[in-house]
Every structure is written in C-alpha cells, then in structure tokens.
Design a binder for these strands. Structure first.
Length: 925
RNA sequence: GCCGGGAUGGUGGAAUUGGUAGACACGUCAGACUUAAAAUCUGAUGACCUUUGGUCGUGCGGGUUCAAUUCCCGCUCCUGGUACCA
C-alpha cells in the first residue's frame, strides 16, 4: 500500500502548522510587511461551498509566496457575523442568533482549516463580539462628534464648529450639512435653548438623526440603504420595498463624495469596479440658475447651461413644495389628483412605467432669466425629488425626455445649435454654433457655458455648481441582530453614551419581533436604559441597531491587533501594517462595503487615527463559481418522471434535483427515491435505459440543490488537489460554472510529483548527483515562469508550468536533490501539504514555510541555437536553426542562400528582409 | 438607453511587448502491460483537400502592417452594473 496518501499528510501538516504557530504575524519591523486580506464571509447555515475558497486560495498562494520571499505576512480571517439570516432563523425557532452564529462559525472554521489556509487564527475577529463592536460603536461616536469642513477639506471635531457658532454664527461656515439649516448669528446661537442647538448641530454631524425618505421593507420590518435595494426589491429575501418618510440615523458620506472620487485615481483596482463607484457617486458639473415665478424662486440644476435659450417650460417633482406654491386655483383639482396618483405609485411601478408620459400644468408661469419670457410650470413624475432641486428647466430640443414631454403636450421646441436635427427626436449634440440664443449666438459650446455662467453670477441669479448622485447612507435597522447604537435620549435630545461605558451590549429579548407599538425588537428588552456617570437618572437608549456594513467598514484595522482592549488598534501596529496590500473579494460589494470602508478610512485618517486614507491598495475581484443545476421533469399530476429528451411528448413541470445524486447528468434512480419521502414511489420513463437530467448554469444556492461542498472534494482527492484545481479552472476574475471534469489531471500531477521522490518500493530515493543541463533548464524555466506569473497575479498559468516540469522530470527520470528541492519550494504555495511532506523527505527541518524561494539562473535558459521561423510574404514556410546571438547580417545571408528559401522565392531578390533577433525572419519578395 | 467585461478546437483554457494560434489539462481514439478490470505508460486528436504536400481557421464585415487572437473603424450575440440623475 501507500503512494500519495493525502489524508495522512494533510492532517499531519495542518496540526504541525497549528502547534508551531507557523503563520503568526508578529510586529517584526526587521522585515518588510505584506498584508493580504480576504473579504470575510457571513457564516450562513449552509456552510462553505466550492465558490467560497476560490479567492481565499488565491490570497493564500500570494501569502505563502510572499513569506518565502522574505516578507512578514499578515493573512487573517474572521466573520461578518451580524446579519439577517440568523435573525430570521431566530424569529422562526426562537433560538438566539448568537447560538446559531457561533455554530456556523465553528463549521466554517473547520472547513477552512481542512483546506490548509495559512491564516493567523489568533487574529480572528467576529463583528458580533462585544469586544469588537465596542470599537464599532466608538467609531460611530467619533463620527457623531464630527462635522465636515470644506474650507479645510476634512472632518473636524464638533467643538470647533460650536466655537465658530459662538463667535460668528453659521453664515461663514462652509460645511456639509442638512437642507433645513437656517442662517443665524452668534447672538442667535447664544439664545437658542439646548434642544434648538442640538437640532442645528445634528444638521452638521457626520452621523445624524433626520427625517428622510427611506427604503422601507414591510416584510423585513426595517429600512434599507440604496445598495441593499435591487430593482425595487430587497437584496436579502427579495421582498418589495417602498419609499417612506421616517426619522432615521444617517451617515454623511456625501461630504466625502469628491475625495472618494479622487482617491480612485490612486488605487490599483479593476477599472470596471472603479467605474461602478464613479457612477454611484455620479458627479455632474453644471450650474444652478433661478427662475422667478412671481414671489416664488425656482432654482434648477442643469449640466447644459448653454441650452438655456431652448427652455420652453419648467417641470417640478410631484413631491416638491413648488407644487403647492405654484398651483393656481383653477388647476387645483387636476393637480391634486395627479400628485396623489404619482405619490401612491410604488418605486417599482414608477420604474417599470418609464414610457408613459404624464404631467399636469400648474397654472403658473415663470420668468426666463435671460429672455424675460413667461414659460409654463408643470408637475411631472419624470422629475425626481431626490436629485438636484426637485425642479428642472426643460430643453426639448436637447433632451429626449423633455422632447417627448413637449411633443405629448404640444409645448414649443426651440433648436439652439445650427446643426441640430430635431425632426424625429432631441439632438443633444454640442459641436455646432449657437442660434436663437440672444447673447450666446454664434458661440461654441464651451464658450457659451462660460459666458452664460458669468452672466448668471453677475446678475446674481445663479452659480456654477457640482451635483452628486450619491445619497447619505441610512445607518439604522429596525432589527435585533446588529450593533446597538451608542445613543441615549435626554428629553428627546440624542446624546452619546460616554466612551468609558462602551460597549452598549445587545440586550436579551423574549422575541425577535417588533413590539406591539411598532418599536424595533430592542424595545422588548427590560430596562434598556443608560445612566451617565455622576447622574442618578437613567435615560432610554436608541432602539435601532446598526446596518450590516457597520462592522465590515473597519475590520481590516482590527486584524492588526484583534485583542487590544485599550484601542481599536495601536499606533505601532497601525503604522507598521498600514494599508492592505492585496484585497480579494467579489465585485458585488462595489457600491456597498467597498465604498463605506473607504469613507470610514478617510474619516479615521482625518481624525489622525490612521496613516493611510485608502484602505485597499490593490484589489482583485474573483469571479463567481456558478452552480450547474440538474433538472427532472414530472408529468403533471403524476409521480412519473420523464427523461430530458422525451419531455416534450408530455405535459410536465421542471424540478431541481440534488446534483449529488446525478452523475454525468444521469440520475441515480435509487438515490432519487430516497432523496425525499414523497418521491419514494416515483416511476420513470427512460431513454436508452437511462434517465438524463436537464442542465443549467445558475448561482449556487441551497434552494437550487446545486451546492457542491469543498469537503467532498477534499475527502476524495485531498486539499492540495482542490486548491490546484480551483486555480486551474481558469482566470481568477472570470465567472465559471463548477465542474470536476478535469480534476483527475490535477490529481495525477500530484501523484506524479510524489513519484519523483519514490521508487517502485515506495522508498525515498534522492540522488545527490549533479543535475544535467537539461534537468536544470527544465527547473529554472519553471521557476522563472511561476515567479513572473504570481507577481502579475495570474494564478492559473503556474499550474500548467508545474505540470510541464513534472512531466519533463519524469521523462528524464530525474531524482536529483538539486532539482527536486526548488521544485518542492515553488509548488508549496499551491499545494502546501505535499510540499511540506516532500521537504521533510529531502531532509529539511522547520518546514518549507521558512525556506527561500529559489532564484533562477538566466544561464540555464539560454539556448545554444534558436530555431527561426522564416516567413515569406507573411506566410510561415520553413524553420532554420542559427546559433544564439548570431549577427543579423549573417543570418540574412544564410537564410537567403538556403535551399528551402530559394524554393519559395524562386530565385528572385527579396524586396525586404526583416530579422528580429532570436525570434523571426521575414522575407518580402 | 448609458457605462463596463467578454466571444479562441468536442470541453476548460494558453499565447505576458503585434512575431510559429491552440501550451497545459479533460474527453475521444489507437496501442502496451493485465486472465480481466482499475491504475499506469506510449501515440494520435482544429477543419478541409488531390495527404512525403497544401488550403482555411481566434463571433461577423472592413482597415493598418512584412506580420493581427492582439491595434483602428463598423456590426452581432452573451454577460455585469446602472437608470426618467436634468
């Protein structure tokens, strides 16, 4: 018996690593640091599937590679443990989500350890641990205590703002703030009572409480942030979402819009991902200009001030205050009706009904600020209340929506460019000269923009302005399983829990549902109050909890020192580890986690708490591993299932079937009958004696029965095979369906490599002889290739290089230490267990982890001769060998004189001969 | 609609700076070993043809170049994001 016994080997080395703390990252300043991070998983009840480890394997390869290249590597893992599934499960079963979560974490950890990752488990974090969320609450407090000063372009402590208010009121303050701020003087400030002062400050704080229009999900009983809503449905669970006005905690991420945009230029992230963030932030450069409608000022935002003379009407959003202010009495009824209908439509309806043009004339007119003409003011639901000013100037000649609206309601359309073609549709071109445009006539686009902007600023009716699409992030959920917000209420005034009293621990409740009064579940807790030190009175605490992204917005700092009780991270640790060097994870977090993390990091940077304002220097998106679902076809109303190709002969319904009882798309009939009790008496209509299943590639999920667990692969082939195979599957970034078609090839490679170290009798058989030139060439070629590929984050191509090398060495029957040692080392990041075993067989103590990546010698790669492909008129014809580094002139001479070339050129003198040394010779006849 | 990404044999994929397209692996076929099977090993394997040779071939149509999977222009299809964002 024996051969490659992966089971014994893997267990043995996993234990060895653990006992020797092989991957402990200490603060060793004598070595350069490398921080490689994975997006930590949410520990779901289904356990890991084969898609999870994909990114982890890649980052593990980099981590192990960096270690044997002399780096001190921080490679941690933890759990994003607050979340809805555990809470939904708690609601159904009454089991405390902490228990469920703990069980799931235990299982995840076991599975991860089986794959042999080089995580430093001592630094594990769990976001639901009070020792962790104490610091999440602490950062919340810091945000609450801060405002954003545009003059200094950074966040500052709220005290500096209060000092300004005391001295000179708020008129000179250039800050990001809410919309309801009114101007006040220093004297006003002094006479405001505590509540009034608090309300004003809330308009400036970076976390604030305000009445906002939120995404409310009735099924989940909570609000959701924009990135948690997809197409009008909740991302988790897929329940409908409606708009609703509510008093809510929010984060003033809009203050950082410009810096979040600017920072994207400085980080090495995939371009598509940066584009997504740019779109999400949605910067528009334009101008705000005011139209006067009697007493009412209507400011509008536009990116096309050049087309101002093309304005033929104004449109306002149904929700905006302008509707009430500008509706004349004779239009009152129709407007009221229209607004009621528009407001009652759900987001979903409004989205799906884009083509229907609707609107009502308010009865009022506004004065055009350039021409003085009167233009009609309409209410229309294509105007959004949440963007810009809730009112737009309509230029039907240049904007398709305005054009459609004008056509529909027979409003005038005025072209403003000499080359505009507006017969069929709006023409947004801006490369002509302006016409019909008063003072702008004859100008080009950019000249007109400048001229018009100068004009409105001079006349004091508007100003150049930049608008952002990004909204402040709602920072509260009416749920139980999240971080409590460290705020208490003193007579309705929100105040911070003293930092010495953190954490505010999540209280016990009898049920995980809202109270009868509609308060969040924390309202069920007994005595959920706070008594400030020195006070005898206790105050009610905030009942909302933080959203899922709170804990993940700073966790990479905590890994540096997961057990620090005094600080969120110490200065020393933070200054050494700095930013994450490599971050691997899915692109689904583009506009959520990855944006919020950058926001928090920049804030912590402003506070002087961290050194780097961008958290993740290099980021790679791993592609999803999709599931390959199998289907059976049940004839309606029967217990009979028909094979895939015969299904059209019957009326049948498609049903997902567990992929684990299907082999090569052929159903295991007996396994099927015992799969579920109701299938016990199933009958089958077969083709060729077999039941063929239908196939489709979909996202891996429990409900589709297409989940493949890495455990099965590990027990059948071993962890090293799984690791190699997941990399061999294709480029890391690519989406690909899971299949095990090629796994044998990878497994075979490992056995072949094992056999290089063993003769027929399974004995260690290492030769101390000097290696031949051929053998050295093979190994050095491989070292070079693997090194170059890993350095450019290509994880799949080195596997092929390994296979070629082992094949060559097997053919050469090479068993020499001089060759096997470097081979073992370079394979170790990919297949660490077998590498450790072989390393030991080679007589080394201490593990391959402590070895040095072998250097390659260019000399072995030099060829004695290069075989030049000779092309004649662009076609490859013959190959001729010439010595390495032979001068061009000699090559040319010999090539032209050669018989083979003579045959093709038919003796003619070539027009041109192009020679690329050591590559190719091209002859043009 | 707008902004991205992609398309290469029967299959997954390789080709890093424009330089021998199809590496490596799977699958298939043939052979060796075996009583047999498994395992292992060897060879063949893009298509086509008049087969010691030749033609075509990287989604489609053009272009640049001695030379294009690679660069440029115009399409088709798949896919991700986003959407009355003024």
């Amino acid at each position: 018996m024996a051969g490659y016994q992966f089971n014994d080997i893997e267990k043995k080395w996993q234990q060895y690593w653990e006992e020797n703390e092989a991957f402990k990252a200490s603060l060793d300043t004598t070595k350069p640091k490398y921080y490689s991070l994975d997006m930590f998983p949410y520990p779901s009840g289904a356990g890991l599937h084969v898609g999870h480890p994909l990114g982890y394997i890649a980052s593990d390869i980099i981590s192990r590679y960096k270690r044997i290249n002399g780096f001190n590597v921080l490679h941690p893992m933890g759990f994003d443990a607050f979340g809805l599934p555990a809470e939904q499960y708690a609601i159904q079963t009454g089991q405390h989500p902490a228990i469920t979560t703990e069980q799931n974490i235990k299982r995840y950890k076991e599975q991860l350890k089986n794959i042999g990752f080089s995580f430093d488990w001592e630094k594990q974090v769990e976001t639901c641990d009070p020792n962790y969320y104490k610091w999440t609450q602490w950062i919340f407090s810091k945000l609450f205590d801060s405002w954003y000063n545009y003059d200094t372009a950074k966040a500052e402590h709220i005290d500096s703002l209060i000092a300004v208010f005391k001295k000179s009121g708020n008129t000179s303050v250039n800050a990001e703030c809410g919309e309801e701020v009114i101007d006040f003087s220093a004297e006003d400030w002094k006479v405001f009572d505590e509540k009034q002062q608090s309300d004003i400050l809330l308009q400036y704080r970076l976390t604030y409480l305000a009445e906002t229009s939120v995404n409310w999900c009735p099924e989940l009983g909570t609000v959701l942030s924009n990135d948690e809503v997809k197409d009008g449905f909740s991302e988790r669970g897929g329940y409908p979402v409606i708009r609703k006005n509510m008093m809510q905690w929010s984060m003033r991420i809009t203050a950082y819009a410009e810096r979040l945009l600017e920072g994207l230029e400085r980080i090495d992230w995939p371009e598509p991902l940066r584009d997504m963030q740019r779109n999400w932030i949605g910067k528009s450069i334009g101008a705000e200009v005011t139209f006067k409608a009697g007493e009412v000022d209507i400011p509008v935002f536009t990116t096309r001030l050049d087309t101002i003379y093309g304005v033929t009407y104004l449109a306002v959003a149904p929700e905006s205050d302008f509707v009430d202010q500008l509706t004349t009495s004779d239009q009152k009824e129709v407007v009221k009706e229209y607004v009621a209908v528009a407001k009652n439509r759900s987001e979903r309806d409004r989205m799906s009904d884009v083509k229907n043009i609707s609107g009502v004339f308010l009865g009022s007119y506004a004065e055009h600020p350039f021409t003085g003409e009167q233009v009609q003011v309409w209410v229309a639901d294509y105007v959004l209340s949440g963007y810009g000013t809730g009112a737009v100037m309509a230029v039907p000649s240049g904007d398709q929506r305005d054009y459609d609206f004008a056509k529909h309601f027979d409003l005038p359309i005025i072209p403003v460019y000499d080359n505009q073609n507006i017969k069929e549709q709006a023409d947004p071109r801006k490369d002509g000269k302006l016409i019909n445009s008063g003072i702008l006539n004859g100008f080009t686009y950019s000249e007109a923009i400048k001229k018009a902007t100068d004009y409105i600023e001079e006349k004091n009716i508007g100003t150049a302005k930049i608008n952002y699409r990004i909204r402040d992030a709602i920072f509260a959920r009416q749920r139980y399983w999240g971080e409590p917000v460290p705020i208490y209420f003193d007579n309705g005034i929100p105040k911070l829990v003293d930092s010495n009293d953190l954490p505010v621990v999540l209280p016990e409740v009898d049920k995980y549902l809202p109270t009868e009064d509609g308060d969040p579940p924390l309202g069920r807790a007994e005595d959920f109050t706070y008594t400030p030190s020195g006070s005898t009175e206790s105050y009610p605490l905030e009942l909302s909890t933080m959203p899922g992204w709170a804990g993940s917005s700073w966790y990479w700092f905590r890994y540096m020192e997961a057990n620090n009780d005094n600080e969120f991270v110490s200065k020393d640790a933070q200054e050494y580890w700095q930013a994450v060097d490599l971050y691997i994870g899915g692109s689904e977090h583009a506009t959520g986690h990855l944006l919020y993390s950058r926001f928090w990091c920049k804030f912590l940077y402003d506070m002087g708490l961290v050194q780097e304002d961008e958290p993740f220097k290099k980021l790679i998106n791993q592609g999803m591993i999709q599931g390959r679902s199998n289907f059976v076809y049940r004839i309606n109303g029967t217990n009979t299932f028909v094979s895939h190709n015969l299904r059209k002969e019957h009326k049948c319904t498609r049903m997902h079937v567990d992929v684990n009882i299907v082999y090569n798309d052929e159903l295991d009939l007996n396994a099927f009958k015992v799969w579920r009790p109701d299938l016990k008496d199933s009958e089958f209509i077969l083709e060729d004696g077999k039941y063929h299943c239908g196939v489709e590639v979909e996202k891996m999920s429990k409900s589709k029965y297409n989940v493949v667990s890495p455990d099965d692969i590990v027990s059948k082939y071993g962890a090293d095979t799984l690791r190699l195979y997941e990399m061999f599957l294709g480029p890391l970034e690519q989406f690909k369906p899971w299949n095990t078609n090629g796994i044998d090839g990878v497994y075979k490679f490992l056995r072949k490599m094992w056999n290089l170290f063993h003769d027929d009798n399974e004995l260690l058989n290492i030769s101390e002889e000097k290696a031949t030139k051929e053998e050295l060439k093979s190994i050095h070629k491989t070292i070079k290739k693997v090194q170059e590929d890993i350095e450019r984050y290509s994880f799949n191509t080195p596997v092929s290089a390994f296979m070629i090398c082992v094949n060559e060495l097997t053919t050469l029957k090479c068993n020499k230490r001089e060759v096997l040692e470097p081979l073992t080392m370079i394979v170790s990041p990919y297949a660490p267990h077998i590498a450790e075993e072989l390393w030991k067989l080679l007589g080394h103590e201490g593990g391959v982890t402590n070895a040095d990546f072998p250097s390659f010698d260019e000399a072995y790669l030099k060829e004695d001769a290069h075989e030049y492909p000779i092309s004649i008129n662009g076609k490859m014809r013959v190959k001729i060998k010439f010595p390495f580094d032979m001068p061009k002139s000699e090559i040319e001479k010999e090539v032209l004189e050669s018989e083979a070339v003579q045959k093709w050129t038919e003796g003619k003198t070539p027009k041109k001969v192009i020679i690329i040394p050591n590559k190719i010779v091209n002859i043009v006849v």
